[in-house]
């Protein structure tokens, strides 16, 4: 008590603040910051188990070189995730925005539909989703059951038809992946003040114009958030190929050093992709703000 009185109110305030943050910081350091530092250290070392625990010997950039030169799987898998990301993220965004617009308009059964659209997020957990995919649940049954492929092949050359159908096949996957994005868009749509729409209506704007001049610019920030979220999500999903590759290296081959190196390379790669997205959006964000 005596000590407390001596400190000024400001210092006491600060101290109390730090005490409140402390548990979080300790957890963060122990389970995020320190492991991150360690894995960086491991990436440059060969780890061998011995009776004194793991012994690390410095190997420099060997593992990083190995990833690009000797590992036959890493680069193709990286390319595969990249193509999956490029094709799926725009689809997810468009679909999520469309669904959010519809959901926002619905007056009856709002809660029910919202729940239905969020459902895949709940189900689409690692174990269950992977099993469903194995069983072919992600494929739209129409294509197989009604022999659509052969029927369409009469009209459209196969070279074009095949990729198109493959794309259509991944559509269900896209829909299941967009639950969180729909929620974010929906929240964004609800923050737009109805006054703006009223003003536009008075000025005689069509619905099409209202969407592009009001709704779209107003939810631009949400689009950025959603893009980032979808990209990170597609890179760290449980059925991601690079992730599986890494798990195999670490837990089957017990190659911690190489695993860390690949982990860091992958992280850098994600970081660069996110950086590019930020650059693209900075421009359009600026114009959106200028208009508002």
């Amino acid at each position: 008590m005596n000590l407390k009185m001596k400190l000024s109110i400001r210092v006491r305030h600060m101290l109390e603040g730090y005490i409140f943050i402390l548990p979080w910081i300790v957890g963060f350091l122990l389970f995020m910051a320190i492991p991150l530092g360690r894995s960086f250290y491991y990436a440059f070392h060969r780890l061998e188990p011995s009776e004194h625990g793991l012994v690390a010997t410095f190997v420099g950039f060997t593992y990083f070189r190995q990833a690009f030169t000797t590992d036959v799987d890493f680069l193709p898998l990286l390319q595969k995730t990249m193509t999956a990301m490029v094709t799926q993220v725009p689809l997810i965004l468009v679909f999520a925005m469309f669904s959010a617009l519809l959901l926002n308009k619905a007056s009856r059964g709002k809660v029910f539909f919202r729940g239905v659209f969020f459902l895949p997020v709940i189900i689409a957990s690692g174990a269950i989703l992977r099993e469903l995919l194995d069983q072919g649940a992600a494929k739209l049954p129409i294509f197989v059951q009604y022999d659509l492929f052969r029927k369409l092949a009469f009209f459209i050359p196969e070279q074009i038809l095949e990729p198109v159908l493959e794309y259509a096949d991944s559509l269900t996957l896209v829909m299941w992946d967009s639950g969180v994005q729909i929620l974010i868009f929906l929240a964004g749509l609800q923050t737009i003040s109805p006054i703006l729409y009223e003003a536009a209506k008075c000025d005689g704007a069509t619905k099409w114009e209202v969407f592009w001049k009001i709704t779209f610019p107003m939810i631009m920030p949400m689009i950025l958030v959603n893009t980032l979220f979808s990209i990170v999500n597609s890179f760290t999903k449980t059925d991601n190929h690079v992730m599986n590759h890494l798990m195999n290296i670490v837990f089957r081959n017990n190659d911690y050093g190489y695993g860390s190196a690949i982990g860091w390379l992958y992280f850098l790669f994600i970081f660069i992709v996110l950086g590019i997205i930020f650059l693209i959006f900075r421009k359009s964000m600026a114009t959106a703000e200028g208009r508002a």
């Binding site: 389970f31 320190i34 492991p35 360690r38 793991l54 760290t236 992730m243 890494l246 860390s260 982990g263």
Partner: peptide
């Protein structure tokens, strides 16, 4: 991405 952390977390 959580994966970079997996190995050291496990060791810890």
């Amino acid at each position: 991405s959580p994966m970079v952390l997996q190995i050291p977390q496990y060791l810890l």
